[in-house]
Amino acid sequence: MNAWLNKIIAGSICVVGLFSCKKQDSFTQVKTGTKPAFSATATDFTFSEATAGDDAVTYSWTASGDWGYRAVVNYTLQIDEKGNGFRKPTEAFSANNSLSKKFTVAALNQIINNMGLAAGRQHELVVRVKAAVDTVGDQVYSDSVLLTVTPYYVPKVYPYVYVPGGYEGWSFDDPRLGALASVNSDKVYEGYLYFPDANTEFKVAAAKSWDVNYGDAGGGSLVANGGNIKAAEAGYYRFTVNLNTLTWSLTNTAWSLTGSAAGGADKAMTFNAATKKWSITTALQAGSFYFRANNANTIALSDDDNNGVLTAGSAGAISIETAGTYTITMDLNNPGNYIYTLAQ
């Protein structure tokens, strides 16, 4: 009986061994794919609105193969400033198994503006393609090609949330509907809203629908489908929303300009309810100025790139070279795209 038992055990071991060998032989050897060859039809541009609809450039690359199996390869175009080493590249295009991408002047100019690069100035950028297989988690990169470009200004396009409320009839189709922008694409949103009446109520919507909306949970907190948020007084408000922490803040603002060109004082600006812009005509001396709310630097705007576009803080104070009377207008209507004009 022991002999029969030994035969059965031995046979079982052989069968298991055979299946084990067969399974091992069926393993796929995963390898890193080949580097794509990358090219561009042009590399030097000066963009203008007059040619916005024209084709600018076509980028082409060869297929990345030899991944060790029949892979679906995703190709992503990356753009960065020359010398940055693609540490934080902008991804301009992504698709599976695609081997080329054509950009119009308008499309590529929008990407350049979204990168925060100043309009009207020449920039040296580099472009490359990344090939990756999601299931493997590996990736390879082409060599880069140069992109020398002078863009024209267009407002940046950001992720937005919307602010339906009593001030615009609770409608997603009303042109008065306010929006907030996440300039860092980090779910932290900011924008400015004019409420002509006291006790205006409103909410936050993730899109132009009520499918995903947030309301007041008390204490500066938000909750999905919560109650209406209320602005107790009429005014021009800075509204911030953080969807990571589900919090909000609302500050009624009155704007002024200040700095050495204003003699160190705050020169109050006037709000136009029809245009929703702030303006002032005043004497300025040689020096610099910036904008701030409520005579404090907690909320301040200045021109870091000296291109008429405002960014947070006072570091980019605006220079006045010649003393005289100036008319300054500030427009905060487009969230994340705050601008001003200066005329003598």
Rank of each mutant, 00 (worst) to 15 (best):
K7E: 03
K7R: 13
A10D: 05
G11H: 04
S20A: 15
S20E: 02
S20P: 01
K23H: 00
K23E: 00
K35L: 09
T51I: 10
A52L: 03
G53N: 11
D54S: 15
D55H: 02
A56H: 06
Y59H: 04
D66G: 00
Y69W: 01
V72I: 08
N74H: 07
N74M: 11
I79R: 00
K88E: 09
E91T: 11
A92G: 07
N97W: 06
F103I: 12
A107E: 15
L108H: 02
L108P: 00
N109G: 12
G116V: 15
A119E: 09
E124P: 05
L125P: 10
R128P: 09
V129A: 04
A131F: 03
T135S: 12
L146A: 15
L147P: 06
V154L: 03
V157M: 03
Y158N: 11
Y160Q: 13
V163C: 07
G166P: 04
F172S: 04
D173V: 03
G178F: 08
V183I: 13
S185N: 15
D186W: 05
Y189P: 14
E190D: 10
L193S: 08
F195Y: 02
F195E: 01
E201H: 06
A207N: 10
A207C: 01
G215L: 11
G220A: 01
S221T: 15
A224R: 11
N225G: 06
Y236L: 08
R238T: 11
R238E: 15
L243W: 00
L250T: 03
L250P: 00
L257E: 06
G259D: 13
G259H: 08
A262M: 11
D266T: 04
D266N: 15
D266Y: 14
M269E: 08
T270S: 15
K277F: 10
I280S: 10
I280D: 10
T281Q: 14
T281N: 11
L284E: 12
Y290K: 05
N294K: 10
N294P: 14
N294G: 13
N295V: 07
N297T: 05
A300C: 11
N307Q: 09
V309K: 02
G313C: 12
G316S: 13
G316R: 07
I318C: 05
S319P: 14
I320L: 00
E321H: 11
E321W: 10
T325D: 01
T325W: 02
T329I: 04
P335Y: 07
G336W: 11
G336E: 14
N337W: 02
I339Y: 01
I339A: 06
T341Y: 09
L342G: 09
